[in-house]
């Protein structure tokens, strides 16, 4: 690793097999840059990937990389973070992974304000299976791989994340690497559950939405304040309404940036400590289970006494 290249810590030697012009390249660069910029050690970062082109992200990073199952990236990431809260845990998955097959996990993760970063790659199509509609593709749209216009309506990931309870919500664009890297950094630094939608071209199956299409439309709303630092219900309501408005803009003008940064909702740690006061200091992954002789360290005598006759 060299000191001159700020990405070197996290750049893996393997060549990505994504298509030329794929938005995933920009996301990968931005992620490398964010991780390096945060000064994290590669050993302490675990990147979980879903299934699809986006799910390959961990292959190309020099961090612990766990390539999981279609739709299940959040449960895997959640389990790892619960077991070893000292790790920086990132989940990377596509639109279909998160909102179709993994929708139950997408929503329920919002109920736990666990310190995870979820990077949601949205190109509105399924790439690896040859261009079917993703759940984010608008009704009536027909991309290159489809035989007919999309008969089903689109889900809005940001609106859904907001309703589900994600406490940090943002949107970025794959080829604005500098801005995206900053968004990823902020998402990782957020001490709760962060959701970052990343808009990206799929040059192969959704060529209409190319770089020019995006650059004409993207803007950063200057008057939006994403910070929630008070329990005032009026402020929360107004902010949620503002995020909903931003979420819905996906045609002529598409806002990017941080939409919500909720510093009020307690982290999941608070709830977990009520159940298990020893957590996270005595985390499951790092707490010994046996002494030097291999004898169990858990003390179950008092429990056994309850069953004594």
């Amino acid at each position: 690793m060299t000191q001159t290249d700020p990405h070197a810590n996290f750049a893996a030697p393997e060549t990505p097999d994504w298509c030329r012009g794929c938005g995933d390249f920009g996301i990968l660069r931005a992620l490398e840059k964010a991780l390096s910029g945060l000064g994290l050690r590669p050993q302490e970062v675990v990147v979980f990937g879903g299934i699809g082109c986006s799910g390959k992200t961990p292959y190309y990073l020099a961090a612990n990389g766990i390539h999981t199952l279609h739709g299940r990236v959040l449960p895997f990431a959640t389990g790892a973070k619960l077991a070893n809260p000292a790790l920086t845990v990132i989940a990377a998955g596509g639109d279909g992974d998160g909102l179709s097959i993994g929708a139950g996990h997408f929503v329920n993760a919002g109920r736990r304000n666990l310190d995870l970063t979820y990077l949601f790659y949205n190109n509105e199509v399924y790439g690896l299976t040859k261009g079917q509609a993703a759940p984010t593709l608008p009704e009536g749209a027909q991309t290159r791989g489809m035989a007919a216009p999309n008969p089903q309506r689109a889900l809005d990931p940001i609106a859904l994340a907001l309703d589900a309870g994600y406490t940090w919500i943002g949107r970025g664009y794959a080829y604005a690497v500098g801005e995206l890297s900053e968004l990823i950094s902020r998402a990782i630094r957020h001490p709760g559950l962060a959701f970052l939608e990343i808009l990206q071209p799929c040059p192969h199956y959704h060529p209409d939405h190319d770089k020019a299409w995006f650059t004409q439309r993207l803007y950063t709303p200057v008057d939006h304040d994403p910070l929630l630092t008070t329990n005032d219900p009026a402020r929360r309501e107004a902010l949620h309404a503002a995020v909903q408005r931003l979420a819905g803009q996906r045609d002529e003008r598409i806002p990017v940036g941080v939409f919500l940064e909720d510093r009020v909702t307690p982290p999941f740690t608070t709830a977990l400590r009520r159940q298990q006061p020893a957590w996270p200091e005595k985390a499951p992954a790092t707490t010994p289970v046996a002494n030097g002789e291999g004898q169990p360290l858990a003390r179950i005598d008092a429990l056994l006494d309850r069953f004594a006759v």
Partner: peptide, 10 residues
């Protein structure tokens, strides 16, 4: 899968 994710960390 959560249990598997936890087991990966030891």
């Amino acid at each position: 899968n959560m249990a598997a994710g936890g087991a990966l960390t030891g």
